[in-house]
Amino acid sequence: MSAAAPAAGLHDCREAYVRAIAELAAEDDRIVAVVNDSVGSSKLGAFRDRFPTRLINVGIAEQNMVGVGAGLANGGKIPFVSGAACFLTARAMEQIKVDCAYSQANVKLCGISSGVAYGELGATHHSIEDIAWLRAIDKLTIIVPSDPWETAAAIKAAAAWDGPVFLRISRMPVPDIARTAGAAFVIGRAETLRSGDDVAIVATGTLVHRAIAAAEALAAEGVSARVINMATVAPIDTDALAAAAATGAIVTAEEGLATGGLGGAVAEYCARNHPVPMQMIGFPGFLPTGSADWLMENFGLTAHGIAAAARDVIARKR
């Protein structure tokens, strides 16, 4: 599928992903890429040209792709197994569970064009269930980067991490997130992008910049919103969640199912430890026909939607 280049100031995170993999591969010959005929959609053409023996294309066969990834790890490689998130996860779920997580194979699974990036192609091609599904698998790290910098940092952190990792790579155009100098990506550690004590917005992936915009709108109304970038959804940063719960109201936001994913993870933590009013921004299920932008807008995955949810949970505070 061809897509127009992102508008000025916005980025397709696949670019950062392929750059990071190429940089790693140049330094470490254990790095290989495994794809399911997805060289184009994963933007790995340049990688294949530069490292022809290290691009393993199994064809349209996702179960075999993930099994081969686990085998390459057994053979001493660090495989980045990349395919459209919808097929990589759903089609090969048992291979992810058994060959990667249960076997603790050193495989890096990259779900490309996650969420609703495929827009009009419909629910078969949306990958909104992936976080909920994968979060149920023990000993599988799940990372959902928010922008190009974090995507590259997460890829490098995953390569250095001994064990299976799922990276949810977006193609939805996103701006660079403003960060303080010296910001570092650490697997399992959330990033507090904005402090605040009236409400906490816990966001991941493409919803992070929208959460910041929501917090800015709320600030204009005198509402102080904490913004947490929960890039690592599993294992989740419970210290950050404790700080979020301390505000007394939480909104979660993700480009995925509102329940079961990040929202579910945060709700589980709060129900057990610190119940507070919550709202979950995300999708309800199979979605109607529409572009990615329209779907995000129509289902309230916007700064406006997050801010409205924040006002709601604040009103419900005791």
Binding site: V32, T53, R54, I56, Q63, N64, V66, G67, V68, G69, A70, G71, L72, A73, N74, G75, G76, K77, P79, E94, Q95, V98, D99, Y102, S103, A105
Partner: peptide, 27 residues
């Protein structure tokens, strides 16, 4: 034990991956 098996249809794909690694490395 090289890889966890049990559900049928898992061992051969993993073995193929091991063999590909060996092929790449001429091991």
């Amino acid at each position: 034990v090289e890889t966890n098996t049990g559900p049928l249809g898992h061992g051969l794909p993993v073995a193929v991956g091991i063999a590909v690694a060996g092929q790449i490395d001429a091991a």
